[in-house]
Design a protein around this nucleic acid. Structure first.
Lengths: 190, 190
DNA sequence: TGAATTTCTTAATCTTGATTCATTTTTCGG
DNA sequence: CCGAAAAATGAATCAAGATTAAGAAATTCA
């Protein structure tokens, strides 16, 4: 649903009918099946993705060839490899659907066109990026200030609904420890 | 020097003479002595800070009442507690000068005024935030993908000049380990 | 310059979470 | 609904880095 996107934008800036039409004309809706990819390593990332429904994860293969998840995106979150997008260098990430998802995709060029025609959109994305940055900082803080076990319990308490949606090993990866350790913690709790 | 700020902005957007005048009229230069604070916990953060010269650090006191540094800012970097700034809730951070510094400060209200008068500034800050977010993500990646020792060696190799500028215990704090462990690593190297 | 404070180092012990490997449980496509 | 693949669990051993407690070196500034 394209309205999900423009509704979200309108939480931050006002859009008139023409703006909305324009935005809808510059984006593409993609239905992505679980386990399918929107981005793979060695490709240049050309689009940014808005999750209208479903869930995406961003990960890379670490030295031991394990998947290391660095972000999830659920409804109303954006996901992209902004570094690859800006620099036009090949990405080293995977962006994969964790669930069957409805994704609103904006091509780099279309986004620039939108910025030209609706300069207020810069404000929307400025705020979105600012919040993303704040969230990332907060996460670094958690990593340094809490043990793995504390972070797991914290996360479970704060996002009980989200942990229902993803396999445990993905949460372990996101939180930076092994599935085995996670089992240990969970066993303890009971 | 106010020009440091407008020069930096002009790396991303073009400004005319009037814009530059206007920006200069809405900002304040602060000379902050080493160890002095721009922000302390329980205060609401009202300003964003651009480092024209010197170095700032952002930190909080963790459970064990140790200082946990989450960011540094050197020349041409911005620093603020964006969460407190946006929400108008009390901060839990310190922003402190690591060296005698020349800081260009913009009050929240003046920034909004600037956004109204120079909408293109939204673009500048959108890009700045996007890069800050990307850097934060990269940092999370490093934390999860490298051991403390590897991160230290990495950092030393990439920013040899910066580590000259700060006490070692601050780097240890930023990298998330103890000064003792850092000594151990350094001794090994020799 | 010299006393006080800050910063850095060393070493012994302890803890958290990784690794390895095997087994069990769950999920999912045909 | 069944078999294969994916996901979760369990236990034993191991390693990275924390903690504690001194003491040494370097800064600072009166």
């Amino acid at each position: 649903m394209l309205a999900n996107l423009t509704d979200h934008i309108q939480k931050f800036i006002t859009l008139n009918e023409a703006d909305i039409k324009l935005i809808h004309s510059e984006v593409v809706v993609k239905f992505v099946k679980k386990r399918n990819y929107l981005l793979e390593p060695d490709h240049i990332c050309k689009e940014i993705y808005f999750v209208s429904k479903g869930c995406l994860r961003l990960y890379f293969l670490n030295k031991k060839l394990n998947e290391q998840i660095t972000q999830f995106a659920i409804e109303n979150w954006w996901m992209s490899d902004y570094y690859s997008l800006e620099s036009e260098k090949p990405s080293s990430y995977y962006i994969q659907a964790v669930e069957n998802s409805e994704i609103i995709s904006i091509h780099k060029n279309n986004l620039e066109e939108l910025f030209e025609k609706i300069p207020r959109l810069e404000r929307y994305f400025r705020i979105v990026q600012q919040r993303a940055f704040t969230a990332a900082q907060k996460r670094i803080e958690y990593i340094y200030n809490f043990s793995d076990e504390e972070r797991y319990r914290n996360f479970s308490a704060r996002f009980p609904d989200f942990i229902q949606r993803i396999p445990q090993y993905m949460l372990a990866s996101y939180l930076g420890f092994t599935p085995q350790f996670m089992s240990k913690i969970r066993a303890k709790k009971a």
